[in-house]
Every structure is written in C-alpha cells, then in structure tokens.
Write a protein that binds this DNA or RNA. Sequence first.
DNA 1: CGTGTGACGGCGC
DNA 2: CGCGCCGCCACAC
Length: 118
Amino acid sequence: MTFNERVFFVVRLIPEGRVTTYGMIAKFVGAPKAARMVGWAMNRSHEQQEYIPAHRVVNRNGLLTGKAHFKGESMAARLEREGICIKENKIQQLDSLLWDPFNEIEIVPKAFYDDLNL
DNA sequence: CGTGTGACGGCGC
DNA sequence: CGCGCCGCCACAC
C-alpha cells in the first residue's frame, strides 16, 4: 500500500462522532514526521470512489484546519451532525472524542506496511 | 533531474 | 502563551 492508501485505510475506520489528528495518522502509517502529508492525502480523498470521512481529521489542537476544502455541507456542520460540539472553529472536549488508531485498530491488512522501509 | 508548495507538529525562544 | 524554524514527502510543473 502506498502512503495515501494507508492514510485512507485509517481514516475510513474512524467511527461517527469521533475524531483523530493528522499527527496520529502520520505516526500510525509509519511516517511520524509527515503529518502535512496526511493533510495532502485528505485533499485527494475526494477523488476516491469509497467514502472517506475526512471531516473527522483535525489538527492536534482540535482546530478544523481543513474546513476550506469541503464543498456543500461544511466541515463543522458534518461534525455537529455527528453530535460533536464546535466553538470558534474548534472541537470542544477533544480528549474525550479522540480516536487513537494505536488503541483502536486491531487488524491491519497484510500489505499495509509492505512499502515501508522499517 | 530541480523546485515549490502544503488540511502539520515538535522544539526552541 | 505566541511566534518562527525546519523536517517531512507526494506531486505538479
């Protein structure tokens, strides 16, 4: 799997009403210092066939830094519709909503780490 | 090939 | 607390 494919795989597992951060995803896909690339992957996520809940990815402070890239329903509205409370463009109670892939993902595809030089 | 550009984050000051 | 710097790496040109 490529970097983007690994990122998409993780994002697709985020449940409704929960969020995770660019940095956490970057760590999980084996590129801990490439959080920016996760954001870039989210840009490309629209072009994917499968549904990728990109609105559930926020920055480490809970800010909706990617909101400019959502067409139609806004990023904030999508999150609020899932029961998440947002004030001043920021997720409230981030700690209790945070979905950490390292704690939550039990099984990864065999091919997940294939392209990774560990 | 080279360079610029990010939906970021960690660290230093 | 708020900057600024820089590593990171996929991709467009």
